[in-house]
């Protein structure tokens, strides 16, 4: 009885470690080696469209609404202390440091990550990856690599757009609706937001999240059991694992960047 439990624990541990290993081997195979820009560039553009441009709408809408809600909530609290002037920094810092990178990563995992896992899993199930390999074309270089780079490029850009739209959304509610002075909204923001400390750190966070989400999504797809059930499980796992890992890393990065 106890030995069975021990055995299960051992097997789960070994499987997990082997999964890490396989994902590392996959990424290594995809990224290491001489890049071929003549063939690679059009593929990258195509994936930037699929991964980046197609995620733009959900990012714009969510950013706008989250900025609006932040302003509304922040205003009720700040006005109790007569500190409505601090609404700008509140909205800007929340978005730049936390919500921009994190919410973008979560939305990205749901929108683009799950799609990538399903796409690659299906390519595996329909023997397209195998077929490519038999045509002497490395699927890691042809399929995985452009998707990886497109994701890593897209996500920080999406996070920037999200944050900018959120700040405008905060302006819309705070200034145009609740009557905070527009000048003080922007100037208090400028007095409290630092380009390196806040903006650049937010972008760095977003890059780390991009690597996490896209790596998990690609690995889950590439490693999926090639059946309809396996692919659906892999897709769910991508969203859950990527989201949790992002939140975990967010805590670590926040502690490193702003905690000291």
């Amino acid at each position: 009885m106890i030995t069975t439990k021990l055995q299960n624990l051992g097997r789960a541990t070994i499987d997990t470690i082997a999964g890490f290993g396989r994902s590392g081997v996959m990424l290594f195979g995809a990224l290491v080696g001489k890049p071929d820009f003549r063939k690679g560039f059009p593929l990258l553009i195509k994936q930037l469209y699929v991964i980046g441009v197609l995620s733009l709408l959900i990012i714009l809408v969510s950013g706008l609404f989250i900025g609006m809600v932040l302003a509304l909530q922040g205003y009720t609290v700040l006005s109790k202390f007569g500190a409505e002037g601090m609404l700008g920094p509140l909205v800007a810092l929340s978005l730049l440091r936390e919500l921009g990178p994190v919410v973008t990563a979560l939305l990205f995992a749901g929108r683009a990550g799950s799609a990538l896992t399903a796409e690659i899993g299906l390519m595996k199930a329909t023997e397209q990856l195998s077929g490519m390999e038999m045509m002497a074309v490395d699927p890691l270089r042809r399929i995985i690599a452009p998707r990886f780079w497109a994701g890593v490029i897209s996500m920080p850009l999406l996070a920037l757009v999200f944050t900018a739209v959120g700040i405008l959304g905060g302006h819309l509610i705070g200034v145009d609706w609740l009557g905070v002075d527009s000048g003080s909204y922007w100037s208090a923001m400028q007095a409290n937001v630092d380009l390196y400390q806040d903006v650049v750190n937010g972008v760095i966070k977003s890059m780390v999240f991009a690597v996490i989400v896209i790596w998990i999504a690609l690995h889950k797809g590439y490693d999926a059991v090639p059946t309809s059930e396996g692919i659906s499980r892999a897709t769910t796992q991508t969203v859950v694992t990527a989201s949790l890992t992002v939140l975990g890393f967010d805590f670590i990065l926040t502690a490193l960047m702003f905690g000291g």
Binding site: T126, E127, S130, G131, E133, M134, A136
Partner: peptide, 14 residues
Amino acid sequence: RKKMSMLFQSGALF
């Protein structure tokens, strides 16, 4: 592999 070629059962078309 450039000298060989495989026809998969499913066709494996992209």
